[in-house]
Amino acid sequence: MPGRPLIGVSTYLEAGARWGVWELDAALLPAGYPRLVQRAGGLAALLPPDAPEQAAATVARLDGLVIAGGPDVEPVRYGAERHPRTGPPARERDAWELALIEAALTARLPLLGICRGMQLLNVALGGTLVQHLEGHAEVVGVFGGHTVKPVPGTLYAGIAPEETSVPTYHHQSVDRLGEGLVPSAHAEDGTLEAVELPGDHWVLGVQWHPEMGEDVRVMRALVEASVG
C-alpha cells in the first residue's frame, strides 16, 4: 500500500521571532498549512528559504509542492516600479520560491500556489501583478471572505464546480497572465481568483487561503495528483 505523499510547503524566514523565553531568527509558517496537508492525506515538509541552486535537488525529494502565502513580490521581478502601498521586499524568499517553481515546472511536479504563491507562479511565467486593489483585505490582520466562481471546463471547476465562499486576505492580484496560464475562477468584482496550466501537468494557483477554511478539496486534489 503506497505511503502518504510528501508535500513541501515554503515558509517565512523571520528575524527576532518570539516564543517562550526565546527571541531568535526562525523559519515560520502558519499551522493551517501543514494541518491542511495532513487533513488532505499528505505529509507536510517545511521548506525555509535556501540557496536557489538547491531548488532542483529539493523538488526531486518531494511528491508535491505548495508555495505559501506571504509578503508582496518585489515589483522588480516583473519589471515594475514600486507602488506606495506595496510592502517591503522579501528578496531571499522571492529568489528561493521562484527557483522552486521553476524546478517544479521542469520536473512536472504537482504544484499549488496559495495567494502570494499564485502571484509568484504568474511572475515566474512572465506575467505581471496589480500592486494594490481594494476590498480583498478589509481589516488589517483579519481574514475576510467572498464568493469565487469557477470557469467551466478547468481543473479548478473539476475540483469545485459550484460557486464557493472562500477565506481571503490580499491587496495584490494577477494583472497580465504568464505564458500558458489560463483563468480558472473569478471573484464577483472580476478579480482573477485562480489560474492553472492546462494539460496533464497538475499546476494550480488560488488567490484565497484554503488553509484558513474547512474546504479541503483543493489540497486533496494536489495530494491525489502527487501519489505515484
Rank of each mutant, 00 (worst) to 15 (best):
P89A: 13
L197K: 05
L36H: 15
G70S: 07
A55C: 09
L46F: 07
D63L: 01
E196V: 13
V59T: 03
V216C: 08
G144A: 11
D200S: 14
G127R: 12
V216N: 04
L65K: 07
I7T: 06
R82S: 11
P167E: 06
A107F: 12
G141K: 04
L197C: 11
P75H: 11
G117L: 05
L24V: 15
G178R: 12
H146N: 02
H209F: 01
P198C: 09
R91Y: 07
P152L: 13
E214A: 15
E179P: 02
G199Y: 07
D175P: 07
W19L: 07
G113R: 05
R4G: 03
R61F: 03
I101E: 13
E81N: 14
G20R: 04
A160I: 13
G20A: 02
M212E: 13
A124P: 09
P183M: 14
L112F: 10
A187E: 10
R39N: 00
R61A: 12
G135W: 09
Q172R: 01
E23H: 05
P2K: 00
T147M: 14
V227R: 08
R35H: 02
A15I: 03
V21S: 10
W202I: 09
G79E: 06
V195A: 01
A51F: 12
G3H: 08
S165V: 15
A157H: 02
P5Q: 12
G205Q: 11
G144L: 04
M118T: 10
G144R: 03
T106Q: 15
